[in-house]
Design a protein around this nucleic acid. Structure first.
Lengths: 345, 345
DNA sequence: ATCTTTTATGCAACCGATTGCGTAAATTTA
DNA sequence: TAAATTTACGCAATCGGTTGCATAAAAGAT
């Protein structure tokens, strides 16, 4: 007895024929429509299972004009943070019958725009974005907004038209990090960050300045280093720091991996961490507790953020607009103190 | 003049009406069908653009029974390797008009199976998988295979039915890594790895044993440590290593991040790397060159692997079966020697 | 000028599920 | 028992492209 030939997909018409009922009845039974007797529903479901029926999602989408698919665009996937965010998103999405399409902008506005277009063509029911490094113009989101497709930014956000934002309190986190360094006695604190047009970096920078101000230390622009926070940039920044006179005694980097690259290079040049320079990173990447010295950092609840994003989006799609779009949701983040920043007193 | 109401999507019928031609002509013009005069094609395309037409992908998929979507299931996204693989995949896929649906199995066979089901329901044209840690039974792939959906495994593969495999030569890489340690004078080399049912780990282990044999050193099972290669496992393994007498003098770990966690813990206990124990990792994660000492490792061309996977899959889908499925493709990988393994001689 | 080919286009069925509306049968109410 | 409801189901249009087949018009051949 050969297995069923493929290609011959079972449809509701086949089930209807086998049971001598109408396709409508099959369709309704399969979705527990109240107007079909439970007896009939039972029979239909059994028959469907027996015949190996699977619903044709395209026919459904075509008719319903809804895809139950959400698009996600992130700069890069290669961090523990992003992986956690995605895991959180997938969990809540799947629980609610939604699927995710994920893509990377690789930190360029150009690829981001092309990804948005693809998502648009794919007719996602909602779009979720963490912005690329160099996105400055947001008009590539206009087709999304004009077609009333809900748009949610997370982490790297933009206050753009009707988009919702989900972030941590970067200002507070930055302030905490730098206050901690100041408490360790640091006076000359370098802040390494990225494009200040990105909220995450601007807010952390504001937190940095606020902390300095709280301690009556004037902000010195030469202590602000801006780059793309890559590993290579971290190494270069180390050179820049080494050339400063007097040497800085504190370093707050807006990203763990870059902090580690920088720290490693500083150590290669004989700098002692934290004795000479105390260091604080950002993100609490797992690696931060395995470098020497272990890195003080800001912990980020990626998984939770992912869940909140999807919950918010789905409740919007359902019309349960308890949490309105065009709103900003702020999640917690906390300072984790490890060896890299604690000076013996 | 208010902007177009949404919801009223432009269809080929609207274009046909506006131009007083048939929908067939519009459809054919839009795909450059040769039987439509270039004059008409031109007009149709202009009109389409002017009216803001976008093709309805569901109608198309429903009719064509093809989704131009490929499913990708990976254990976790949070590594540089995976991120690179995905980037490579996306590039080639997009160039060929395919989209990717990506999901994480989070290293469990259970979630992997549920992801496969989701992909199946989504009617992906092809499925790409890197197996979870504990997948031992492969029957969840049967619906895929029975429906003639091409299945490609990469990195963590299985020789299962008609699936194709794309891997690096893990045996050779393992052998190279361990031979390198032996050349440094190591005699008691620990190998930390994971589930040997996974090809990547089994093959590396075979390479390890081969290298030992080449140097006439008998394999001692007590030097084989198996765990899930998590950071925590790396720490625990360090304790285990510290309790060995005599102390091992070499360590080959099947994963960089775990190697780093282990190395870090060993250092916390006063072990000098590489003097006391020389260490080699696997994957060439960027972080490996920023730890102290910098980690010797095996470099993996993730981006290239991703591209090869998709190229192979698409050429199969196109029927250009130059590279047959049910085949194994082996890519290069090479040893990168850094400080962690080089003993002063 | 007539016949054959080629070119350009239209017709209409089809993909598979959804759903508003209508109605026969069963049940309840008067 | 007749009338009013309720229950259970079917009809047929619809979603928006795709494509095999037919055909009118134009071009070429004889």
């Amino acid at each position: 007895m050969p297995a069923d030939k493929n290609n011959t997909e079972v449809t509701i018409y086949d089930i209807a024929e086998a049971l001598d009922v109408s396709p409508s009845t099959v369709s309704r039974s399969l979705k527990n429509h109240s107007s079909i007797s439970s007896d009939t529903q039972q029979k239909v479901k059994e028959q469907a299972k027996e015949m190996g029926y699977r619903s044709n999602i395209f026919a459904k989408n075509l008719r319903r004009k809804k895809t139950n698919t959400l698009g996600v665009i992130v700069p890069k996937l290669n961090s523990n943070f992003m992986s956690s965010v995605i895991a959180g998103m997938e969990k809540v999405a799947n629980e609610n019958g939604y699927n995710l399409i994920i893509s990377q902008s690789l930190e360029t506005a150009q690829k981001e725009a092309s990804n948005v277009e693809t998502m648009f063509e794919s007719r996602v029911d909602g779009l979720i974005v963490s912005l690329a490094y160099d996105t400055e113009d947001y008009s590539h989101f206009d087709p999304i907004i004009e077609n009333n497709i809900p748009l949610v930014f997370f982490d790297r956000v933009a206050y753009y038209k009707s988009a919702a934002n989900i972030i941590i309190d970067n200002f507070k986190a930055g302030q905490q990090a730098v206050t901690h360094l100041l408490k360790q006695g640091c006076k000359r604190i370098v802040h390494m960050t990225s494009n200040l047009a990105r909220n995450v970096y601007e807010d952390r920078f504001r937190g940095y300045k606020q902390a300095l101000e709280d301690y009556d230390i004037p902000f010195d622009p030469k202590y602000l280093i801006q780059n793309d926070l890559s590993n290579q940039a971290g190494q270069q920044a180390a050179q820049q720091i080494l050339s400063m006179d007097p040497l800085p005694d504190g370093l707050f980097v807006a990203n763990d991996t870059c902090a580690i690259a920088c720290m490693s290079t500083l150590q290669d040049h004989g700098i002692k961490i934290p004795e000479d320079i105390a260091v604080v990173g950002f993100n609490n990447d797992p690696i931060s507790s395995f470098v020497n010295p272990k890195l003080t950092t800001i912990n980020y609840h990626g998984n939770e953020m992912g869940k909140v994003v999807i919950r918010n989006l789905i409740s919007h799609l359902n019309g349960d607009n308890n949490i309105a779009m065009t709103n900003t949701i702020i999640l917690n983040a906390e300072l984790i103190i490890r060896e890299s920043s604690v000076k013996a007193s």
